[in-house]
Design a protein around this nucleic acid. Structure first.
Lengths: 328, 328
DNA sequence: CTGAAAGCGCTAACAA
DNA sequence: TTGTTAGCGCTTTCAG
């Protein structure tokens, strides 16, 4: 096992001090001849600087931490692309971890990021991890919470989210415009985003004279529970003519639940989901999309630019009409 | 901006030495009373250990580096899930970066991972980055190349790949079984995986008496070029009755290229692609799948277990029959 | 069981 | 322009 060259080895080989090596590496004032000597030693020894040590000295690393709740969701996927792109443009690496939707894991991962002294943190986790994010923000590490807002955020703790009520209203409006009169909803749980979307939906539906009773909303935390949820909705109201899914993560499963029962879209039932995805055009599925990629970009810019005040960015959803809800 | 507590602060508050604090933090021999004093100081000061410094001392960090060529591919997506899962189980964070398919970026990212002194490295990059991977392996950092093999690998440089020839043969066999007689192929480029898949396809097709002339293979490096490639194939042979796509990344685009021309699948033309994806069942698309998730897991296990010899894992593809090729 | 002291690889004053 | 000298925060001998 070959030992790695240190800055000391380079210094020795070049016949200069470590300070001088550090200077040529980081662009200090040095003679051209010294620089040449040093660079040749660097090449000869295949010296690769140790970013860890640099980070120790600086008090923090140069990588950006990202804690994702569930990689499998199309929203997170585009979000990561956006994050990765601007991080790359700033020469920052991205360190990420996935919490598999477990709260204890969320807290642990955020803590791990803190231990790594990340330059900034982007999380899509729930409120339990906010405490640490606040501390980190107070300590000078910009944090961005994505997909929900933070109550009473201190300086340095930002949020990037969607106007979820508007998303719900958009869905309701389209369904009504397509002449649907009885809608069932599959939601993933009780996170704020889910509740707000449902609220917006109910609100706007009511304005069209269409009620959305509580039992027209079925909860399916995981894919495996979706089929039952769909079954429940269908059984409850024989005249159900629309199903909406408030999270892209479960869209495949909801769609499958409908197909498995021999229901044809949109003739037998309309299907509308959150979050656009690459195959949606091929399937003709109408969606309410979040600008996930742009949200990832903006979140990362907040980390990089580290504004003093707490920024609270809210993005607007967009209805992308395809065929799955029929036409008016 | 609140200053972070260091181990020295904790020591001072607990009335012990930094060595003792380090011992209680890392499980050395200490009295119960000292331990209690230290822990209470830790809590009071909200002390969070600095993983960077730890890494400096250990000579390496505890995070695993992953360099991905293109996040947008379904293969990489499942691969990452596998990586993330076993890394999580071992308490390692994952640091990843995306190279957007640019060779210079690949080399730079791998270098960055080296500078970070990652505990191990998993790359899906091309050969130019192998040189550094060899050096890293020689220095005791296990490296795993995914999606291709490495010629003459030194100890510590492993590979995890697919039997691409078998994948091509599988595709050919299915197409022949479905009675297709003239196939066109869309490939992404000239990487080994693409060439091997094409070779397997051609080979097996020939055994069925079906030739695959060079101009029945169209190259489309990016999504934007797919439609033209499909057009070319269609124009070349009016009797074309099957299109295969050798990479999941371009499947959406190929499928769209067919639909846009009003071609119905499988009646007008069969469609067969590499890499399974969540919506494939809904679309009835037949695929030859790679066990991407499992490959990610195994790659990470190689990093964690760091076998002395160079491991060369080859996985088998699987045909998942759906409706897009019609039946025999 | 505990503390003092040395040092991991690097950067940043401060002199020379 | 360069070298010397302190550290950064932590771990690890080595005495006691």
């Amino acid at each position: 096992m070959v030992k790695r060259a240190t800055i000391g080895d380079v210094a020795a080989h070049a016949g200069v001090s470590t300070a001088t090596v550090s200077r040529v590496l980081n662009g200090g004032a040095v003679t051209e001849v010294t620089a040449t000597k040093v660079w040749s030693a660097v090449t000869r020894l295949e010296y690769t600087p140790n970013a860890l040590t640099r980070g120790v000295f600086a008090g923090r690393s140069s990588t950006i931490g990202v804690v994702i709740r569930d990689l499998a969701s199309p929203f997170y996927f585009d979000l990561i692309r956006g994050i990765d792109e601007v991080a790359g443009a700033h020469g920052s690496l991205v360190m990420f971890s996935n919490t598999f939707r477990r709260v204890d894991s969320e807290v642990a991962q955020v803590r791990a990021m803190d231990e790594q002294r990340v330059r900034g943190l982007i999380v899509t986790t729930g409120e339990p991890s906010d405490e640490r994010a606040r501390r980190m923000a107070a300590g000078g590490t910009p944090c961005v919470v994505v997909a929900r807002t933070v109550r009473n955020p201190p300086p340095g703790l930002h949020s990037v989210s969607l106007d979820n009520v508007a998303a719900g209203r958009l869905m309701a409006g389209h369904l009504a415009a397509c002449g649907r009169t009885s809608v069932g909803v599959v939601i993933a749980g009780t996170r704020p985003s889910q509740r707000e979307r449902t609220a917006g939906l109910r609100q706007a539906l009511a304005e069209f004279g269409l009620p959305l009773p509580p039992d027209a909303v079925a909860v399916a935390p995981a894919e495996g529970e979706v089929s039952d949820a769909v079954g429940l909705l269908l059984a409850r109201d024989k005249r159900l003519d629309a199903i909406v899914c408030t999270t892209g993560r479960l869209a495949v499963a909801v769609h499958a639940g409908l197909s498995d029962r021999g229901l044809s879209i949109p003739d037998d039932i309309a299907f509308l989901t959150m979050d656009d995805f690459p195959w949606a055009p091929a399937l003709g599925i109408t969606v309410v999309a979040q600008p996930a990629y742009e949200m990832g970009r903006r979140a990362t810019e907040l980390v990089v630019e580290a504004p003093g005040e707490a920024a609270e960015l809210v993005f607007e959803p967009a209805l992308i009409k395809r065929r799955s809800c029929g036409e008016a």
